[in-house]
Design a protein around this nucleic acid. Structure first.
Length: 416
RNA sequence: GUGGCUAUGGUGAAGCGGUUAACACUUACGACUGUGACUCGUACAUACGUGGGUUCAAAUCCCACUAGCCACCCCA
């Protein structure tokens, strides 16, 4: 029995990988327009970093982390998300002394021990961005606009923006208490899960999928009515900036976050096309996190998107690169000439293919067609004798004789 | 961690107790013209996830295991 891969760890094969490259290249291009620089941090960190930042009581920390003890008796964890490691690096490398505003983006694998399903894997990939040092709500809007810009560039209209505010350490506890009180009144109408949630995290009851809970929480108090003045003003400003820049969004006051560090603005890009995994990208403000991790008292905001989920939205296959030229050679001497010309043209930057096995001309033509080559250069004994190869345009079958040298071939390949 | 569904070649699949395990695609070679697509021919599963059981007879029925998918929980 051959060795198989690990459950929930996938191979990304040619044909699919082109889509990933496009997503990554688009992210780099768009994020850099907005002044973000890439940062690369390790995929493992001390376990403590994640329990401190994400929150001890969250599902991620409680049951989904790939944690183990290394040979030096250190507790380490394969990162389940990107923000914690980036913030650790930010603090450790004292990036804030270089510039009061830091804009970073990252991409790479994350690991969560969950049951795999559509759009959810144990090794999955995120592209994320973080801004540290700006409290002004314009940066919230900026980040959202950038995210929308990214999806536009990919030609996707589907994920739509939803925003909410979770308040701050001042006003959230008050809201939480108000919500809990409301839920207590309706205890009978709630599902078992929600009754449990009432204690651990009452906000979760708001996005429960059980129909009965939806009805029961229909008139539940909204966070947005419980924001303190500062949070309320902040959220209003974010919306104003989105309106002014004509960025489409909707307010979803029932939106909840799974990580503890979020404050004030939170958002998700959601789609109905991915089964139960509706969130394609999500993020928010985390004003207390950096200080919590032992860094300076600086605000932050960021998001992460799931690359697998974005790839699922990109219709069709990523298509493979097609050769500019296939050189079909008939006979040993012609094969040598084909190889020489191929090397020359590759040096000029053309994608050139040929047959390595000395197969029949027919086979070679078939392969040229299969690969989708735009042109095929045919070289046999006659062509070798005259020094003129036949260049065939595969689309219409027309042929012209051309000298067997790099520059005339390069010229022919460049036009049309 | 909990449910449901499914497991036949490189792929999509037929098969419903006795068949040489269909068919299509892919791949390879060949015919038509030293030159692709269309057409045609030939080849490609001692084998039906693994292990047991029932039966004269199992890919087909039963059980267990494993894997995959989807959903719940939760999340990007």
């Amino acid at each position: 029995m051959a060795i198989t891969g690990i459950k929930g760890f996938n191979d990304i094969l040619p044909g699919e990988v082109e889509k990933w490259q496009r997503i990554e290249a688009t992210a780099r291009r768009v994020f850099e327009i907005y002044g973000f620089s890439e940062i690369r941090v390790p995929i493992m960190e001390k376990t403590e970093l994640f329990s401190r930042s994400i929150g001890d009581a969250t599902d991620i920390v409680e049951k989904e982390m790939y944690s183990f003890t290394d040979k030096g008796e250190n507790r380490v964890t394969l990162r389940p998300e990107g923000t914690a490691g980036v913030m650790r690096s930010f603090i450790e490398q004292k990036l804030h002394v270089l510039d009061p505003v830091t804009k970073l983006y990252y991409m790479g694998p994350m690991f969560r021990y969950e049951r795999p399903q559509k759009g959810r894997y144990r090794q999955f990939h995120q592209i994320g961005a973080e801004v540290v040092g700006v409290t002004n709500p314009r940066i919230d809007a900026q980040v959202l606009i950038m995210l929308c810009h990214f999806f536009q560039e990919l030609g996707l209209t589907e994920p739509t923006l939803q925003i909410n505010s979770l308040g701050c350490p001042e006003c959230r506890p008050l809201y939480r208490a108000a919500l809990k009180e409301y839920l207590e009144q309706r205890r009978e109408e709630l599902c078992d899960d929600c009754r449990r949630r009432m204690e651990t995290n009452p906000l979760r009851a708001l996005d429960c999928k059980v129909p009965g809970c939806g009805v029961a929480t229909k008139d539940a108090p909204s966070v947005l009515d419980h924001l303190c003045q500062g949070c309320d003003d902040h959220f209003a400003a974010v919306r104003r900036h989105l309106d002014v820049t004509k960025t489409p969004y909707s307010v979803n006051h029932r939106m909840v976050r799974g990580l503890d560090y979020y404050t004030r603005t939170t958002f998700e890009l959601v789609t109905g096309l991915l089964g139960s995994q509706s969130a394609v990208a999500a993020g928010g403000r985390y004003d207390g996190l950096i200080e919590e991790l032992g860094g300076p008292k600086l605000p932050g905001i960021g998001f992460a998107m799931g690359v697998e989920r974005v790839a699922l939205l990109l219709s069709g296959e990523g298509f493979a690169r097609v050769p500019d030229l296939f050189i079909a050679a008939h006979g040993e001497a012609a094969g040598d000439e084909a190889f020489r010309l191929m090397t020359l043209l590759q040096g000029e930057g053309f994608r050139v293919e040929l047959d390595y096995e000395g197969k029949s001309l027919k086979s070679q033509m078939r392969r040229a067609d299969k690969l989708g080559a735009r042109f095929t250069l045919i070289i046999g004994e006659d062509e070798l004798a005259t020094g003129q190869g036949m260049l065939k345009a595969m689309a219409d079958g027309s042929q012209v004789a051309l000298p067997l040298a790099a520059s005339p071939l390069a010229a022919a390949l460049s036009c049309s």
